[in-house]
Amino acid sequence: MTTDETACSAKGCTAPAQWELLWNNPKLHTPDRRKTWLACDDHKASLSDFLGARGFLKDVVSHR
């Protein structure tokens, strides 16, 4: 079991995070600000697609 700080951000998922999805909402955040969602391998694509469709996704990096 993982702690909330290292678990995937997908609703109901408690799998350990393998990825950091770095994003910002340009209507709310300065261009250099990055918020982070964590993703397991199973949810990396769906969370990336959700953020990407809104133009929020900036980068995806390995979570260490």
Rank of each mutant, 00 (worst) to 15 (best):
M1V: 06
M1T: 13
M1L: 09
T2K: 06
T2L: 00
T3C: 14
T3G: 09
E5A: 14
T6N: 11
A7K: 07
A7P: 00
S9Q: 04
A10Y: 15
A10D: 14
K11P: 13
K11R: 14
G12C: 07
C13A: 09
C13Q: 04
T14Q: 11
T14R: 14
A15L: 06
P16V: 09
P16F: 07
P16Q: 07
Q18R: 08
Q18H: 04
W19I: 10
W19Y: 09
W19L: 03
E20T: 11
L21Q: 01
L21F: 04
L21I: 07
L22A: 11
W23Q: 09
N24I: 00
N25T: 06
P26A: 09
K27N: 12
K27L: 03
L28G: 12
L28N: 08
H29K: 12
H29Y: 10
H29N: 08
H29D: 05
T30A: 15
T30E: 12
P31L: 07
P31E: 02
D32Y: 15
D32G: 12
R33M: 12
R34A: 15
R34Q: 15
R34G: 12
K35N: 14
K35H: 11
T36N: 13
T36V: 14
T36H: 15
W37F: 09
A39T: 00
A39M: 02
C40R: 01
D41P: 02
D41K: 01
D41R: 01
D42Y: 04
D42P: 02
D42C: 02
D42G: 00
H43R: 01
H43S: 02
K44Y: 11
A45K: 14
A45I: 11
A45E: 10
S46N: 10
L47Q: 05
S48E: 04
S48M: 08
D49R: 13
F50K: 03
L51W: 01
L51E: 14
L51T: 08
L51S: 05
G52A: 08
A53S: 10
A53N: 14
R54G: 04
G55V: 05
F56I: 05
L57Q: 02
L57N: 08
K58L: 11
K58M: 11
K58S: 12
D59S: 10
V60I: 13
H63E: 11
R64S: 03
R64M: 12
